[in-house]
Amino acid sequence: MRIGIYVQWGVEGWTGGINYVRHLVMGAAALPPRLRPHIVLLFDAAQAPALHCYEGILPLVDEVRVVSGGRDADGVFRVQDPETAFAGLDLAYPLPHGFWNPPPHLPRVFWIPDFQHKRLPRFFSGQELANRDALFAEIAGRADMVVLSSEAAQRDLAEFYGVEADRSFVLPFCTVGEADWYTGDVAGAMAKHAVPGGYLMCCNQFWAHKDHLTLFRALARLRDGGVELPLVCTGSVHDYRAPGHFPMLQREVQRLGIAGQVRILGLIDRGDQIQLLRGADAVVHPSLFEGWSTVVEDARALGKTIVYSDIDVHLEQNPPHGVAFRAGDPVDLARALLRSRSGFGPTAGTEREAQAREQGAERLLRFGMGLVHLARAAVARRGAR
C-alpha cells in the first residue's frame, strides 16, 4: 500500500490542519512493518515557507514529492503534471477541495472538518454560507469517499448532503505527545510568559464560536462568590468573520472586573503552549462547535482535567478527566469549575501524565490503522465504479 499525505496547510497559520497532517504521518509510520504503508509526503510548493512546521516528520516518510498546484478564478484546484505527482499511489489524502480531476486511478477522497455553517449559520455571511454549501454539495456528488473526524459530522453529512454511510468514513484524529513534551521546562515557560501559578488555561482561537464570553462571565460569577481563578488564554486574536469580536471581549473583561486574573498571550510557540498546559491546574474549553477538538485531545495526551461544553463532539470524544457543562451557560460552567476543583493541579511529572503518555502510543496505532482501512475502502470503492 502506497499512501500520499498531502501537505496543504501551514502558511495561513491553521494549526489544526498542520497537526492533522503531522499525526497522519506519525500514525502510519508507527504501524508494524507488515501493515505500514509506503508513505509519500506530497508537499504543496505554496507551503514552502511553512516547511519548518513539518521538519519533525520528514525522517518518518519514505519519499517527498513537491506538488505544484493552485486554484483558478472558479475555485477549481489544478495540479501541474498530476500523472507524475501521484504516480504509483493507492491513495492521496486529503485531496484539496476543488481538485476534481486527479488521475483516473486515484480515489477521490476529501476531508470535511465540520458543518458549522449548518449548525451555527449566524457566524457566517450569506456569501460564505452559499460558498460552503456549493463546495460541500459538489464534494458530496464527486467523492468516492468523504472523510469526517466524528460520528456527529457523519450524521450531519447524511442529513444535509444525503451521503450514504458506505460513502463516508469516520477517522477521529488524536494528539500524541512528542518526547520533548514530557521533559520540557514548565517553570521556564511560565517565567517567559509571566504566568503565575494556580491557573486555568483556555487554548482557543478568539473566534466567536469558541465562546470565551461564557468563560469570562463564569469567572466573574465565581469571583463575586469569593473564588478567584486565574486564567491564561492562547490563540489568535483575529476573527476574519467578526473583526470586532476580540475588542468586544476585551471590553467585557474590563466591565466584568476580571482583567487582573485574565492573561491573554495570543499565538505562542507550540512548545511553550504545551509546557503551560502541563503546568495548568485544568483546561477549560467552552466552544459551541467543533469537528473534533484538538484541545480535548491535547488534554487527553497530557492527563489534564478538562471542563468542556456538552456539544455532541465533546461527548463523543469523552476525555478521561473531563467534566461537561451546558454549552453557552456561564452559571453551569461556574458550577462545573467548582465541582471539578478537587481534580485540579499541574500534571507535569505525575503518574497521571505518565499513564496518558503510555496510552498515546495505542491511540496513534489506531489512527494509523484507520488511515490504512480508509485507503483500502477507498480503493475498493473506486474499483467498483
Rank of each mutant, 00 (worst) to 15 (best):
F169V: 04
R167G: 02
A208F: 03
F77H: 13
A375C: 10
A334R: 11
A220P: 04
L129A: 10
S68F: 11
L41S: 08
F344M: 02
E83L: 12
P196E: 07
A165Q: 13
D269R: 07
N19A: 08
L148H: 11
G16N: 06
A29N: 04
R34F: 09
E138G: 00
L213S: 10
V284Q: 05
A218R: 04
E128P: 01
S309N: 04
T294E: 10
L231P: 01
I274L: 05
A336D: 11
G16E: 01
L229R: 15
R22T: 12
D144T: 15
R65V: 06
Y6D: 13
R34C: 01
G88L: 06
S168Q: 13
G260E: 00
V323A: 09
A334F: 10
A282C: 02
D156Y: 01
G141F: 03
V237K: 06
A152S: 13
A259S: 15
W9A: 12
K304H: 13
L288E: 10
V284N: 12
D332H: 15
V195M: 05
T294Q: 13
G383S: 06
R339F: 07
H285C: 15
G343T: 03
P32W: 04
A137I: 00
F160M: 06
A134M: 12
R36W: 01
D166H: 12
E358W: 09
C202W: 01
S68A: 15
M145F: 10
I139G: 00
G184P: 10
V64W: 06
R241Y: 03
P32H: 04
L135F: 00
A152K: 09
